[in-house]
């Protein structure tokens, strides 16, 4: 499903070139659950954004589902993100003035579908993450775990083939974090491909494969026995 070939990313910071990724080769299969681990500055988040068609690599080739998103014009890249990728951010980035339902509806706002179908999809996604009955609450009226679930519902509502998560349990206590991970495992079992950045070995243990990064290179991979 995902193929990265010799992907390098160099950031320019105050005239100094910083190598975030160095010639990374990676293959992720359809329906796989991958955890990206590594110390800060190892390139995990950069890799995640490159997979999400948000951050073009300096060199190298990225192919997702047979498409090279970075060869598309900018507006078509946005369309690609809309269709192929669901993002869950560490800070959640929920829109504070929109309700749970409206936050989840957000990706569907620009979809050409009947209003009732959109509503049905959004409510189904909210039910799926266990937040049924809280559709009309504002993010500020939810716990951290609930906010994480809203973010996951928003990422799933458009049924993208790829779910990308950046430290999904980073701001949660261990119990709430464990529940969120249960949800992700459940989604993955239902066929959803998941790529997750985490520092937490317990969280990473939920994934089928753990990829360790250091200094922009893949240091090693561990596949969990099925």
């Amino acid at each position: 499903m995902i193929e990265l070939s010799r992907v390098t990313k160099v950031y320019q910071a105050d005239g100094v070139a910083v190598h975030a990724l160095r010639e990374v080769d990676l293959h992720i299969a359809e329906g796989e659950f991958v955890a990206l681990m590594g110390p800060s500055g190892s390139g995990k988040s950069t890799l995640l954004t490159i997979l999400g068609a948000m951050n073009p690599p300096t060199t190298g080739r990225v192919v997702i589902d047979g498409i090279e998103p970075y060869n598309l014009p900018l507006e078509r890249q946005a369309d690609f993100r809309h269709e192929y990728v669901g993002f869950v951010f560490q800070q959640y980035h929920l829109i504070p003035y929109l309700t749970v339902l409206e936050n989840v509806l957000l990706p569907l706002t620009i979809a050409q579908r009947p209003r009732q179908e959109k509503l049905h999809q959004a409510k189904a996604a909210i039910e799926r993450v266990g937040l049924g009955g809280k559709e009309n609450r504002l993010p500020s009226q939810l716990s951290g775990g609930e906010q994480a679930r809203v973010t996951i519902a928003r990422a799933l509502v458009n049924q993208p083939p790829l779910l990308l998560l950046d430290e999904p349990t980073g701001n949660l206590d261990s119990t709430t974090g464990a529940r969120v991970m249960e949800l992700l495992v459940e989604l993955n079992r239902a066929g959803q491909a998941v790529v997750m950045v985490t520092h937490n070995p317990e969280t990473a243990a939920c994934a089928g494969r753990i990829i360790r990064l250091r200094d922009g290179c893949i240091e090693g991979m561990t596949a969990r026995a099925k």
């Binding site: 507006e75 946005a78 993100r81 809309h82 951010f89 620009i110 928003r154």
Partner: peptide, 16 residues
């Protein structure tokens, strides 16, 4: 900025 960044990340076009 963050809100607009989110819109762009979830697939909003510049025109949106």
């Amino acid at each position: 900025r963050q809100e607009i960044g989110l819109f762009r990340a979830i697939g909003f076009r510049g025109a949106h």
